[in-house]
Simulated scan of single mutants.
Amino acid sequence: MQPLFIVLEGIDKSGKTTQAELLKHYFINQGDSAIISSEPTEGVIGKLIRKAMQDPIFAIKDKTKFDQQMAYLFAADRHDHLYNEVNGVYKLIKEDSYHVIATRYYFSSLAYNTNNAEEFNFVYGLNKRFPNPDLVIYLDIPLEMALSRLDNVVFKEVYETQEKLQQVKDNYQQIFQSYNGKILTIDAIDSIEKIQEQIRIYLKKNFA
C-alpha cells in the first residue's frame, strides 16, 4: 500500500486516538511503516495551543477573539506539521515512506473555531492552501455519549462543553456534506473492534 496521509476527525471523546493507535499497529503488522502525528503538535506553537486550551485566560477572554486567535495559532502549527524538514508529514511520507495518521487537521479548525458564516470564511481563508489528506475518517458519535465520557475527565479543555460540542458536531456535518475528497464516515456508537474493521475494509478496497 502506498504511503498515506490519513486524518481522523470527530468531536471530543469520539475515539480518534484509540482508532489511530489501532490503525498504526495494523500497518506495522502488514509490514509497512506508520506513525501518529497529530494536531496540535508537540512543537513550540502546538505547546502554546495546548496551554491556551487548558487556560483561556492565558490567551484572551472574549470568546470570538479567542477563537480567532486559536485559528491563527492552529494554522501556523499546521504549516509546521506538514512542511518542517525533520518530522513533517510530507517528509515522513515522501522520504521515509511512512503512513502518517493524524487526529485532527484543518477540518477541526473549521468546526471548532467558527460560529457563523463570516467566521467560517475567515478560518477557511487561513487553511485553504493546505492539501487534502488521502483519507478523512469521521467518527460520528452521539453528543450524549461524548458528554458521558467527558464526565470521567478531571481537567476539561475550554471547548469541552455541551453547547460548544453540539455546535462543533453541526459544523462537521456541514463541512463534510460539501467535502470532495475521500471520506469514510463511521457511526462511532459501534464497538472499537467494529469501527477498526470498517476502516481496514475501506483501506483495502480503495488503496490496496
Results as ranks from 00 to 15, higher is better:
Val168Phe: 08
Thr41His: 09
Asn115Ser: 13
Leu203Trp: 02
Ala102Trp: 06
Ile28Arg: 14
Phe130Pro: 00
Asp77Arg: 08
Phe58Lys: 06
Tyr83Ile: 02
Tyr159His: 15
Leu8Ala: 06
Tyr90Ser: 06
Gln54Glu: 13
Glu163Ala: 14
Tyr138Leu: 08
Leu82Asp: 05
Tyr90Met: 07
Tyr124Arg: 14
Gly88Glu: 08
Gln166Ile: 07
Gly46His: 05
Ile141Ser: 00
Tyr106Ile: 01
Tyr112Cys: 09
Ile195Lys: 14
Glu95His: 12
Phe5Ile: 04
Phe107Ala: 15
Gln30Val: 12
Ile49Arg: 10
Tyr72Asn: 04
Ile141His: 00
Gly31Trp: 06
Lys204Val: 13
Glu160Asn: 03
Glu39Asn: 01
Ser148Gln: 13
Asn152Pro: 01
Tyr106Gly: 07
Tyr83Trp: 11
Leu135Thr: 00
Glu21Gly: 05
Glu85Gly: 12
Lys63Leu: 05
Glu163Met: 00
Asn132Glu: 14
Arg149Tyr: 08
Leu143Lys: 09
Gly46Glu: 02
Tyr112Arg: 04
Asp32Ser: 13
Glu21Met: 14
Pro3Asn: 12
Ser38Ala: 12
Leu184Glu: 07
Phe122Ala: 09
Arg104Ile: 04
Leu110Ala: 10
Gln166Tyr: 12
Ile201Ala: 12
Lys63Gln: 04
Glu39Thr: 01
Glu85Tyr: 11
Met1Arg: 07
Asn87Phe: 09
Val44Pro: 00
Asn127Trp: 02
Ser38Ile: 10
Ala102Asp: 04
Ala117Phe: 10
Gln30Asp: 11
Thr103Gly: 05
Asn171Ala: 03
Val89Gln: 05
Pro142Asp: 04
Ala102Gln: 01
Leu73Asp: 00
Leu147Phe: 08
Gln30Pro: 02
Phe120Gly: 03
Gly10Cys: 11
Gln69Lys: 01
Ile137Pro: 00
Gln173Asn: 10
Ile183Thr: 13
Leu143Glu: 02
Ser178Val: 14
Pro142His: 01
Tyr179Ile: 02
Thr41Asn: 02
Met1Pro: 09
Tyr179Met: 15
Ala59Ser: 07
His79Ser: 10
Lys65Asp: 03
Leu82Ser: 06
Ile28Glu: 15
Thr161Tyr: 09
Ser37Trp: 08
Gln173Cys: 04
